[in-house]
């Protein structure tokens, strides 16, 4: 008896690190832009901009929120751009975002759709 699983390719991970409290807006924006889901968790961290802001750096909290969004590579740039402006990354100290290509992805795939796609 052989069990086979379906893996997906052409997936991209967007990781967006913002200050705690700003994560929700990022998640909402990702879903709005067509992402299928988003995961967020809390962390601590500082960056170079935060330190170089001088006294203004006080306003930036060490407590961060990290948002993971996995999107198909076709949508990646679009979502990336949306998140950039939602997270206000054009202001120093607001956070950082990066995109990584994923080698493989696996999750539930509706069997009838899988059959259709594999056939083509």
């Amino acid at each position: 008896m052989s069990k086979d699983i379906i893996v997906l390719t052409d997936a991209v991970l967007l990781t967006c690190i913002v200050q705690r409290g700003a994560g929700e807006a990022v998640v909402d924006a990702a879903l709005q832009a067509g992402a299928q889901g988003a995961t967020s968790f809390f962390a601590r961290g500082t960056g170079v901009r935060q330190r170089h802001l001088g006294v203004l750096g006080i306003t930036i909290s060490d407590e961060k929120e990290i948002v993971y969004v996995v999107v198909p590579s076709d949508q990646a740039d679009y979502v990336f751009e949306k998140l950039y402006f939602t997270a206000k990354l054009d202001t120093p100290g607001m956070g950082i975002m990066y995109m990584t290509e994923l080698e493989k992805l696996a999750t539930y795939i509706p069997p009838e759709i899988a059959a259709k796609l594999e056939g083509s």
Binding site: R49, H52, L53, L56, I58, T59, I60, T91, P92, M94
Partner: peptide, 23 residues
């Protein structure tokens, strides 16, 4: 470039607002 250059940012008004308002 940044390690050799100066480290002050020219902030726009909106940047001040974004930094200070939530705080």
């Amino acid at each position: 470039a940044e390690t050799s250059g100066r480290r002050r940012y020219r902030l726009r008004k909106i940047d001040y607002y974004r930094l200070l308002a939530p705080y």
